[in-house]
Design a protein around this nucleic acid. Structure first.
Length: 454
RNA sequence: GGCGGUGUAGCCAAGAGGUUAAGGCAGGGGUCUGCAAAACCCCGAUGCGGCGGUUCGAAUCCGCCCGCCGCCUCCA
């Protein structure tokens, strides 16, 4: 299997260090609702994780929450509530959105404010080795001590410096970044050897990765907008602290969601919330939209595109509702070749677009075979299994209950009797009535099938 | 300005030197059908931003140009 490693700038064979693949994915800063750009990133890493498991790996997945930072403090003070309460609320909402999208939970979700001890330990270690310095209660990382700085984002120091107009005087060097920030009056703080303060943004990820996954982890993921400076800084501080190179073996970055010819981002305000979109479309449609293009390409959000995905998702779902014809068919649809092609596509840097094409071809084959009376049960199982690797549930949006299912089934069978007696008016009235209630009836040579309208 | 990405049918989107350029949505024709819907079959780029070049052969490699986007400040 090959994966594109940002560090190498090309695809590489994937060989984890041990039995368990260690995977760290950068989480959110909890000060606002999740938007579909977040959905994109977390759906993608969810699929990567599901596929690795499908290929026989065990995975240990850590994802952080930044629950203290400037924006959280600012927002909280506007709302006049404690910053940690604000963060907690948005973390809960994050979980609700991501659960709805059928994104599997990570093994552990550490929070910055709960890892202060580990952060302080690392900062102390960096100070002791001379890789950091203190100034007025804050501690900065000494970038010039790390010659490899820029290796991930493929930049060099002098280029970056020449572009910088201003920098804070308290730093020795413009690119030095804060490991520990002294707190201003009224801000939340934690006691430290340098006085009251809080962790810098980058350090929490190093602290958590080292604590929960070890000095050298297999996969580190995040959006492409984190490559510089966030991940670059993580490398600098982690490798300087542990002496272990590389800190990360495979850097995986997802493309950025565009909207209205611009990057979708909290700071520009051009957002489409996850909750908002899930009111209109099924989780499968959203996932299908995201996974229809390659994970490293930018993806432009549009309602039309998700609508098209909804139609596609319906086709996949519908192929699973054919009446089983086990044992009756002389021949059986063999779906192994489809599974092979699916694996081939996914082995090539998670080519979900191609994998999805295979699912649609299998769907057509199932439909065709069902009409011909070929046994398709096994093929349906395979379709459901492979769809599951991409996180599709292929369940209808409306949750059915045994009660309503029975009523609808009864109406449908009564209508079938009417149709047999050519009572078209009554039959059509039932169909129309059910349609108004959100149930679609379809008459086929094999009988009437029904589904909830999505 | 530096670094990176990208431009493929009406729309979305794979493919990265060589059989008929995947797949989805929309559209047209047909089969089936009381009608409807679905499903299935057939059709659609002699063409892959433009111009040159390398090659027996290029969406695919090279050069130049044009367009769009990202990062370089917080961001998934």
């Amino acid at each position: 299997m090959k994966v594109f490693n940002t560090m190498a700038g090309k695809e590489e064979d994937f060989h984890p260090r041990g039995e368990v693949v260690t995977m760290y994915v950068c989480g959110i800063t909890a000060y606002d609702d999740s938007h579909i750009g977040h959905a994109m990133a977390y759906v993608i890493f969810d699929v990567i994780k599901r596929y690795l498991r499908f290929r026989g790996y065990k995975i240990k997945h850590i994802q952080n929450f930044t629950d203290i930072d400037d924006k959280i403090i600012q927002r909280a003070s506007q709302l006049e509530i404690p910053p940690l309460r604000l963060a907690n609320e948005y973390i809960e909402r994050y979980f609700a959105d991501m659960d709805a999208l059928n994104i599997e939970r990570a093994d552990i979700y550490p929070r910055a404010t709960e890892e202060i001890a580990q952060v302080i330990e690392i900062v102390q270690g960096l100070l002791a080795k001379g890789h950091a310095y203190e100034f007025e209660g804050s501690v900065y990382f000494r970038v010039r001590n790390f010659p490899a700085y820029g290796k991930l984002s493929h930049r060099n120091l002098s280029d970056m410096i020449s572009q910088m107009c201003t920098y804070e005087e308290k730093k020795e060097y413009p690119l030095d970044f804060a490991l520990w920030k002294a707190s201003k009056p009224g801000e939340p703080f934690w006691e430290s050897p340098w006085g009251r303060g809080r962790p810098g943004w980058h350090i929490e990820c190093s602290a958590m990765a080292l604590k929960y996954l070890g000095k050298s982890i297999d996969i580190h993921g995040g959006g492409q907008d984190l490559v510089f400076p966030h991940h670059e800084n993580e490398i600098a501080q982690s490798e300087s602290f542990t002496g272990q190179v590389p800190f990360v073996r495979y850097w995986l970055h997802s493309g950025i969601m565009q909207y209205d010819r611009q990057k979708m981002s909290k700071s520009t305000g051009n957002l489409v919330g996850v909750g908002e979109i899930l009111k209109r479309f099924s989780p499968d449609a959203v996932r299908l939209f995201i996974l229809s293009s390659h994970y490293r390409s930018p993806l432009t959000y549009s309602e039309e595109a998700v609508e098209a995905s909804e139609k596609g998702a319906e086709r996949l779902r519908w192929a699973l509702t054919h009446q089983a014809s086990a044992g009756k068919g002389v021949t059986t649809l063999n779906a192994e070749l489809f599974e092979q092609r699916f694996v081939e596509a996914m082995d090539d840097d998670f080519n979900t677009a191609q994998a999805i094409a295979v699912l649609f071809e299998l769907t057509r084959e199932i439909n065709r075979s069902a009409e011909e009376g070929v046994d398709i049960i096994e093929a349906q199982h395979i379709l459901l299994k492979l769809a599951g690797v991409l996180g599709f549930t292929l369940r209808e949006k409306t949750q059915s209950t045994p009660d309503t299912d029975a009523f609808i089934g009864l109406l449908a069978s009564v209508r079938d009797d009417l149709r047999r007696n050519q009572q078209w008016q009554l039959a059509d009235r039932i169909r129309k009535g059910l349609a108004d209630l959100g149930v679609t009836l379809e008459d086929t040579p094999q009988g009437t099938r029904w589904k909830y309208k999505t």
